[in-house]
């Protein structure tokens, strides 16, 4: 009888550990939440150099945007991303643009074509390829464009905003809520971000081997 009880307790413990593990895995898939520490990354930019968050000591943080060449939503935002970098890079929040797509699924998203787009549009910011798609996974990005703001706090970076760039992907003139700008203005005036999470539609990231 005692053995039976011990067995039950054992199974309960094993079961709880298993369910806890699967729970942790599920939350991992969702990526960073607001306030989380964001791991640094090193990705190759269209200029051929490796770029990380920590190396630019002057920055107060970054606007990190997962974007690409082929997606109509990303294309609709090209000009607005350039404008964000122009406005906020010299205030300490430059743009880091990351293309997470498997280029074998979309030829337009190849590294060569990224270089071509960056050149023709005159990108003032780093446009990088997430070749292993590890960065997009860590962020929990599922579509392009997906925007994030991270803030430097000593030696680490923390997540401050996750979501859309603004509330009108189709028409820059029709924007009424400037989510990224509002969040940055909050941060630059030393306040917490008021709207720190929004949802949007975009092109699903094409994962390798799926």
């Amino acid at each position: 009888m005692k053995n039976f009880k011990v067995n039950i307790i054992k199974s309960v413990v094993v079961f709880s550990v298993i369910s806890l593990c699967s729970f942790i895995r599920i939350s991992d898939n969702k990526g960073y939440a607001i306030g989380d520490t964001v791991s640094d990354f090193r990705l190759k930019s269209v200029e051929g150099k490796m770029v990380s968050m920590s190396e630019n000591r002057a920055s107060k943080g970054y606007i990190i945007i997962f974007t690409c060449n082929h997606c109509p939503f990303s294309r609709a935002y090209e000009g607005r991303i350039i404008a964000l970098d122009k406005k906020y890079a010299n205030q300490g929040y430059p743009v880091l643009a990351i293309n997470p797509n498997d280029p074998s699924a979309y030829e337009e998203d190849s590294f060569e074509n990224m270089k071509a787009v960056a050149k023709s549009k005159g990108y003032s910011f780093n446009y990088m390829q997430d070749e292993n798609q590890d960065v997009a996974r860590a962020f929990g990005a599922t579509r392009t464009p997906s925007a994030y703001i991270v803030k430097r706090e000593g030696d680490r970076f923390t997540m401050q905003y996750i979501g859309a760039i603004d509330d009108n992907s189709q028409d820059a003139n029709g924007v009424t809520k400037h989510y990224i700008e509002d969040a940055l203005n909050n941060l630059l005036s030393g306040k917490p971000v008021v709207t720190n999470f929004t949802k949007t539609v975009g092109c699903a990231i094409k994962w390798k081997g799926v």
Binding site: T142, R143, G163, A164, D167, N168, S169, Q170, D171, G174, T176, K177, Y179, T198, K199, T200, V201, G202, A204
Partner: peptide, 19 residues
């Protein structure tokens, strides 16, 4: 309805917005 954030949750709270 380009302000997706205003209505995605009305369809379903679990929808991230991906189609």
């Amino acid at each position: 309805e380009p302000d997706y954030n205003s209505w995605i949750d009305v369809i379903d709270k679990d929808w991230s917005g991906t189609i």
